[in-house]
Amino acid sequence: MQLIEGEKDQILAIVGEVLKNSPKQREDLIPLLQKVQAKLGYLPALAMEKIADGLNIPAADVYGLATFYNQFRLNPPGKHQVKVCLGTACYMVGGDITLESFERRMEIKEGETSPDRLYSLERVACVGCCTMAPVAVVDEEVEGKVTPTRVDGIMLALQDEEKKNEKELKSNQEEGEDA
């Protein structure tokens, strides 16, 4: 994933700050990665390299750990995050079909972020509301009984919201120019 403008400085600043305030033993590596991810939303390659330098261990060790555990993500989260539950109960009523429908609408695969960073799609093990299966978590809101038609509805709502935002941004800019 390409870094966007100004992101490099932000990554360096945050990693530097986290490293400064944390113990730097090997057993602190997972908590360190968790802290950085909590601030950045993901673990960019640059951050992993800097953490490896800070702990004086090979960058491959950090990458190994980050890819071993499910919690760590290597792609930036989209502005709208969708997590599709594929726990046993959801799978049995077609959670995979739901996931596929999102993939089709977002034009990305599970685990990816759209190039404009608007959408990201993930699968999760179990959200814990099996009665509402199949379940998807859209921007922290739990949606139950998500059929492909509902997926279309959700995506339309999100796109609508984006269009509105864009329009507002534009009119704000125009106002700014007028002033």
Binding site: G94, I97, E100, S101, R104, T147, P148, T149
Partner: peptide, 10 residues
């Protein structure tokens, strides 16, 4: 057809 089961439910 992607066999999504929607029509059957609908």
């Amino acid at each position: 057809c992607v066999k999504c089961d929607n029509c059957l439910k609908a």
